[in-house]
Design a protein around this nucleic acid. Structure first.
Lengths: 331, 331
DNA sequence: TCCCTGCATGTTGTCGACAACAATGTGACC
DNA sequence: GGTCACATTGTTGTCGACAACATGCAGGGA
């Protein structure tokens, strides 16, 4: 029971195979009644074009490679979901390859796999500078969009930086002047962006970042980092964390020591995980629209593949603060 | 700068293109010195096989279709990440299509896209019975593995059921006899499994499930459902929830009403989100190994594609209870 | 010496689609 | 009526790999 080909369709419809192609691609002229005969044959045979044959001849693939590590995390997962839906709507399929983000060799082999599969373009959700550099070094010959670099054109700050900036504004407004910053891993671009945006803005607003420490996004790291601080370091009035997870861990550590949040210590996270509204105290946080980010990424890539500007997609919405109970005015 | 083909390699190596193929496929005899010449040519030209041409002729693709909705959620995300890594290690690439799980039409079109792309097999992370039925109805002609059905062969309970069962055991051990159950959406298979496993086991152990209500996995739904209970319904001593998110929402609602967790109400969740160890009270929960689930899925599919039994993968680890502070012995 | 066998390698055909070019028919216009 | 332009349809070639068949050459046995 082999699938039908255009030749089968042509035979049933009583036309040449080329007429079938013309009808299917919709471009060149086919007489309406001829078209109807072809349509009937397609229907009858349940014809589906063979993507491999089409690709071999025309070299136009409709597959997009997506390179990522850690798609199980909140942000990347949402981005992926949105990107896939967007690609699907435009007739593309996503080839997802999850790399071991720590080894450049893994990135190289993943890129090779994707190019062998003739992807029309590649979206890289690269988390670290090393990976980005490795990707750039490869000559892949197809359009490439790197997530972390998007939106950072020219002088305008990236989404990550904006996330840091609004967190700083929030703490400044509440009167905090001496704070700590709990960053993500040093190598992560998102982490660098948020940390950089925060400290620049906080200092610009007249505050002092007493310390900046790097966790690994997990609540464990937030807990341990707070526990390891000395008395002087704990003498701040607020902490901003680069992820809600770390913020929750830090709050747990502080609470375990008898430090009250928010009366003695304000804490703001980043990500707006669905749960953090319901933990107690509910967590103030910086929300971002990851799905929009995914759509923007795909739109940028498809535009560069197809060479035409499609229906323009709105720019990524700016991150914004959701003030809840874990941050309070400095006493 | 077109990529090299086997003909280019053959010319450089001074052999016929067929010899190149033979060397590359490694099967038929090629004299060692001939092989070396070919290898050198491959290296020099940076030759990469054209997957489309290979597929067109041989009909053996090394792409796996993955159909999913809601990959941004915790479980599916982890499953996807592990499945992708596993597939990659075995030389396959994952084509990911995210469907709108609520509409059968979307499922049909997604399946069509995948079959057009000549995937060698399909993994479906289908959440609802409707979607599973729709998938089964399609004649796709390639091996298919549906996540929710895995491990439920014969009499042995599925992973979802086991998750419900161990939660029931935990509450029974703590002396609870009259409890509520906060299930996921009625249509979700994982939800049905967990709920069914829980109530069967709890009743079998001499307890009574006073009510069973359906949320939508979100903390909001947990909060709202508890708030909407009448006094009699609140007269239970424990609640089991089908997700940690709903459990957290429910705890927030109870706490807001002045009900103390765990002294007046024990709550156990499901999933073991990384954060729930650090919320206060820390959440007792049922942990599952989603990544192993992803590996098992891929292994099952690849086995059925390749027809041979590979290195056997351990069965999914059974879900187990992590007892923390949100559950206590019944007073 | 001759023929047969088996190994190593070369030649031609094929997968299914699209591209380029060729051929037919129709009506308009002179 | 003849010519031309255009609309419509058909024929042949091509993409890059693998498959099937064909060839050449060496060694072994008669």
């Amino acid at each position: 029971m082999k699938p039908a080909t255009i030749y089968d369709v042509a035979r049933v419809a009583g036309v040449s195979h080329q007429t079938v192609t013309r009808y299917l691609r919709g471009s060149n002229a086919v007489r309406p009644e001829t078209g109807e005969r072809v349509a009937a044959a397609v229907e009858q045979l349940d014809y589906r074009p063979n993507a491999a044959a089409r690709l071999l001849r025309s070299r136009h693939s409709n597959r997009i490679g997506l390179l990522a590590d850690r798609i199980d995390a909140n942000g990347p997962g949402s981005i992926l979901a949105a990107a896939s839906a967007f690609a699907h709507a435009r007739g593309y399929v996503l080839d997802v390859v999850v790399t071991d983000g720590t080894s450049p060799g893994s990135v190289v082999s993943s890129l090779q796999v994707l190019t062998e599969h003739q992807v029309a373009g590649i979206v890289a959700l690269a988390n670290t500078e090393v990976v980005v550099a490795e990707i750039r070094r490869q000559q892949i010959g197809v359009p490439l969009v790197v997530a972390s670099e998007l939106g950072a054109q020219g002088d305008s700050p990236s989404t990550s930086e904006l996330a840091g900036i609004v967190a700083a504004e929030h703490l400044l407004e509440l009167g905090h002047r001496r704070v700590g910053y709990l960053a993500g891993p040093e190598m992560w671009l998102a982490s660098q962006g948020r940390a950089g945006g925060f400290s620049r803005e906080f200092v610009r607003g007249g505050g002092e970042v007493a310390w900046m420490l790097h966790g690994d996004w997990t609540p464990e790291s937030g807990y341990d980092l707070w526990s390891g601080l000395d008395a002087e370091q704990k003498g701040i009035t607020a902490v901003a964390a680069a992820s809600d997870s770390m913020a929750i861990g830090l709050i747990a550590a502080a609470t375990d020591e008898g430090v009250d949040v928010p009366s003695e210590l304000s804490v703001i996270g980043t990500d707006d995980l669905p749960e953090v509204k319901y933990v107690r105290p509910s967590l103030s946080t910086v929300a971002m629209d990851f799905e929009q980010e995914g759509r923007v990424l795909m739109d940028a890539l498809l535009t560069s593949i197809e060479g035409v500007v499609g229906v323009p997609i709105a720019a990524p919405t700016a991150p914004y603060v959701i003030a809840r109970d874990s941050t309070a005015r400095r006493k």
